[in-house]
Structures are given as structure tokens and as C-alpha cells.
Amino acid sequence: MTAATATTVRTGSASARRPKPAARTSRVVLYVFLTVLAVLWLFPVFFAVISSFRDYSYTAEHGYVSFGGFTFQNYVQAWQQADFGHKLLNSAYITIPAVILTLFLSCCIAFVVSRFAFKWNLALLGLFTAANLLPPQALLIPVYRMFRAVHVPLWVSDSGTLLNSYVGLIAVNVAFQTGFCAFVLSNYMKTLPRELYESAVVDGAGVLRQFFQLTLPLCRPPLAALATLEVTWIYNEFFWATVLLQSGDKYPITSALNNLRGQFFTDNNLVAAGSVIVALPTLVVFFVLQKQFVAGLTLGATKG
């Protein structure tokens, strides 16, 4: 091959790799669209964070479209006034057991539905998923009456019923979230090769051993993704906490924001500081499990 021929081949290859004008234009439009969408999405969060560091008297005089009046006192006052320390413990008492129970029960349901063939297979999965199709407001009165009629020992609840107890609130969250998690996990477990289970059966592994030693280790990515979502949803849940809890000392951290609102006057900068404090635990969980969360969203989408 002569030098001229080699030069022609390299030039042709470079021209083939060079994007066409139409493709380049569409890529630029896509980048601009995503950038604008990201700015519009993050602007309220950015505005809330900036407002949380500003003094209310300064913004009342100069307006929010100004620069100055920065202080850290809003966070100190919000933490003391809303009693975030106690409310954060209440949220931990509710969120951690609820997430663990939801993921474990969902794994059990998904394993049975995906690995065993029987007549009511899909109907069973649909039964658990149906809980996510009903709005919580439609079940308010029946759930409230049922919890009021169920008597439990006093060490479980001061009221003697499931009302005003962490157990009742945990049970409601588990009931509403198990269907979604079971649906996601069953789809992922169906992509696991059956040859693994056939080999396990040949080696003498029973159903429990297949579940705990084979299936659960392979489901770590989707479990991490679901754990991130469930912590966020259960931690931020406020509707059932308001309905089922009757004493303020058991309310979760989301209810603490009401303590920052006055009867005749509300310091919006103080509320913004409280909102940032409430959002921090979920942000920490997301960044800790970010790698597993992204991987769990794509795994199981395709086979092979």
C-alpha cells in the first residue's frame, strides 16, 4: 500500500467518524433542552437553599431578588423550635423497620411468583400490586376503624389499640409498598438463569437455601435501588402519620415543619431551613447507594 493510498484511507475513515451536520445539530438541541430542563428542575431547590441562609428582616426590606443578609441562625432556630432531634428518631423508628420488612416480604413474594408455576401465579402478584392502585384517601375510614378495633398490649401502644403506635404505622407502610417492590423484584428474578437453580437442586439445595444463598445475593442491585426509593417514600410519608398517630411526641420529622408556622405570621426563610434539614437524610442515603441505585435501574431490563 503506497503512502498516498494510506493517506486516502485515513482521510476516509476520519470523514466517516466525523458526525454529520444534521446529527450534530440534533445533539446540540438535545444538550440545550436537557440543560434548560435541569435548570428549571433545580431552581426551586437552589432558591430554597439560598433563602434558608438569609435573614427574614433583610429579605422583607430588600426583597428576595437581592444579595445579602446571610446567616446560619435559621438552621439553629429551626432545629430548636421544631424539635428535629426527637422527630428524626421517630422517623427512624418508622422508616428502618418498614423498609426492611417491605424488602424481605417482597423478596419472598417475588421468589414464589417467579420460580414456581401454579394456577393463581399472576393473580397472586396482581393481588399484592392492587394495593398501589387505590388512593390512600379512599381507605382512610376503613383502616382507621380497623386499627381502632384491633387491641394490642400496652407495651406496643399506649392506647391499647394499633392507633397511636409505631407498629400500626409500620404495618400500613409495609402493606402499601410491598406490592410495588414485589412487582419489580419478580421481573428481575425471572431474568436469572434457571440453570443456576437446576444446579442447586442437583447439589441438594432446598427451597430455603435457594432463596437465602442464591437468590438474595444476586438481587443486591435491585434491592439497593428499591431501598433508596422506599427510604425516600416512607420517610416523607405524612398522610397516614397524621391519621393514625394521636400524640405529637410520636410524629415523624415531616410533621415538624408545622411547628415552624405561626398562627398569624410565617417566616418563609425559617421554613426553608427546616425543609433542607428534613431533606438531608434522604440525600445522604441516595449518595451512599448511588452506584447500586443506578445499576439496579438497568439490571433485569434485558436478558443475557
Rank of each mutant, 00 (worst) to 15 (best):
F264R: 12
T254V: 14
T242D: 07
G204F: 06
E230V: 02
L245S: 00
T254D: 01
A200Q: 02
Y251S: 02
A205P: 08
S275K: 08
V243Q: 06
E237P: 04
A205I: 03
R261W: 01
A200G: 04
L270N: 06
F286L: 15
L244S: 02
Q263R: 13
L229F: 13
V278C: 03
E198V: 10
S247R: 13
N269A: 13
N258W: 05
E230L: 15
P221S: 05
V231S: 03
F286E: 07
N258C: 02
G274K: 09
P217G: 09
A241S: 13
V231G: 01
R194V: 05
A227Y: 01
L229C: 01
L270K: 05
F239I: 00
L196A: 08
P221M: 02
Y251M: 13
R209S: 14
N258K: 10
A224F: 06
L214P: 05
Y197H: 01
L260Y: 03
P281Y: 07
E198S: 07
L226P: 05
L226M: 12
F211V: 05
W233L: 11
W240S: 03
Q210R: 12
F264C: 00
R194Q: 09
S247M: 06
Q263Y: 12
E237Y: 09
D203H: 08
N268R: 11
L257P: 06
R220K: 15
Q263M: 11
G274N: 10
V201R: 14
E195M: 03
E237S: 07
F264T: 14
V207Q: 04
N236K: 07
S255Y: 08
I234L: 05
P221L: 04
V276P: 02
L192I: 15
L196Y: 15
Q246P: 00
L229K: 00
S199D: 05
R261I: 12
F286C: 10
L218K: 06
G248W: 00
L216Y: 11
V276E: 06
A205E: 04
A273W: 04
L244V: 08
A241M: 02
K250M: 12
F239L: 02
Q246A: 09
V207E: 13
P222R: 05
A256H: 03
T266D: 03
F238G: 03
A273R: 04
F211M: 07
P252I: 06
N269D: 11
F264Y: 15
R220Q: 11
P193G: 08
T228S: 12
N268H: 14
A227D: 01
V271K: 00
T282M: 15
N268A: 10
T282I: 15
L257S: 07
V207A: 10
T228V: 14
D203V: 08
F239D: 00
S275N: 13
L223V: 13
F238A: 07
C219I: 00
F265R: 12
V231F: 15
L218H: 08
R194E: 07
L245Y: 01
